[in-house]
Simulated assay, not measured.
Amino acid sequence: MELVVPARFCGPPESGNGGWTSGHLARQVRTTPELPAVTVRLRTPPPLDRPMTVREVPGEGVVDGAVELVDGDHVVAQAWPDRGPGREAVPGPVPFEVAVAAGERFEGLADHPFRTCFSCGTGREAGDGLRLRPGRLEEDEAYACAWVPDTGVDVETVWAALDCPGGWASGIAGRAMVLGTMTAQVDDLPVAGAPHVVMAWQRGSEGRKHLSGTALYAADGRLLAQAEATWIAVDPTTVRPAGATR
């Protein structure tokens, strides 16, 4: 089958938003009660407005249900069912008003590498992008952002909402990083027009790898979705930003 990333869902102006693209591909993965989540590994920048092919991953030793997204001869991303991110260390949500206040400390307001980003771009119009503003909590290392979804909330939008806050919590401000791998489990979709909170936190680092966790909560405190991601710090002078770069 074919899959297209419309230009509206960009990260950098020329390539797809990593979270939205990953969520779009994740729809093609068959999950089970034992494997309720999906892991997506981005390999190259997802092109915009160009049909790509989704196919089963060839070769032996491949996880059942694994698929890959192919642009001509190039593998853009691979995805497979997963047990999901661990829930034992997930911080609970802060009140919506606290998340709104944290947004005033969003580092992207002063310096944003990709103002067009569908998830957190400061150059997007209301109703066109998510316009997330993840900011550090005053007495905590975690980040939080307030989100009131517009109409048409879907799985791709939830993956996009879980994506960028993790990058900012991992220290993306002032340095180039790309999203390498993202594992997400979406238990329920948010309600359009209702207040929600996205929490983000660091899970450690090793060399150029930076690990993040994110969680989406409803106003009543229910955990709707959760993700873990691996971000890779890169040299912006030698590496073209990937589709999930922020």
Rank of each mutant, 00 (worst) to 15 (best):
C145Y: 11
C145W: 06
C145A: 00
C145P: 03
C145K: 01
A146P: 11
A146V: 11
A146H: 07
W147F: 08
W147R: 05
V148N: 06
P149W: 00
P149C: 02
P149S: 08
T151F: 10
T151K: 15
T151Y: 13
G152Y: 02
G152K: 08
G152R: 12
D154I: 05
D154V: 03
V155E: 14
V155C: 00
V158W: 07
V158M: 05
V158H: 04
W159M: 03
W159V: 00
A160G: 04
A160P: 00
A161V: 04
A161F: 07
A161D: 02
A161H: 02
L162A: 06
L162Q: 00
C164S: 09
C164K: 04
C164H: 09
P165T: 01
G167R: 09
G167I: 00
W168R: 12
W168L: 11
A169D: 09
A169W: 11
S170N: 14
S170P: 12
G171M: 11
G171F: 08
G171S: 04
G171P: 12
G171D: 13
G171N: 10
I172P: 00
I172R: 14
I172C: 15
A173G: 13
A173Y: 02
A173T: 12
G174S: 02
G174R: 02
R175M: 09
M177A: 14
V178L: 15
L179C: 06
L179E: 09
L179P: 06
T181I: 14
T181V: 15
M182P: 00
M182T: 10
M182D: 04
T183K: 01
T183Y: 07
A184N: 06
Q185R: 15
V186M: 10
D187P: 06
D187M: 14
D187I: 00
D187G: 15
D188C: 13
L189Q: 07
P190L: 07
P190W: 03
V191M: 04
V191D: 08
V191P: 00
A192V: 12
G193R: 11
G193V: 08
G193K: 03
P195C: 08
H196I: 05
V197W: 06
V197I: 00
V197H: 06
V197M: 08
V198I: 13
A200G: 05
A200N: 09
W201P: 01
Q202N: 14
Q202K: 15
R203T: 13
G204V: 02
G204P: 08
G204H: 08
G204L: 10
S205H: 14
G207K: 05
G207S: 12
G207T: 11
R208F: 01
H210K: 14
H210T: 10
H210A: 14
H210N: 12
L211T: 02
S212G: 14
S212L: 05
S212I: 04
S212C: 12
S212Y: 09
S212K: 11
G213D: 00
T214V: 05
T214P: 03
T214W: 08
T214Q: 12
A215K: 11
A215M: 11
L216N: 01
Y217T: 10
A218M: 04
A218S: 05
A219F: 06
A219E: 15
A219L: 01
A219P: 09
A219R: 13
G221T: 02
R222M: 02
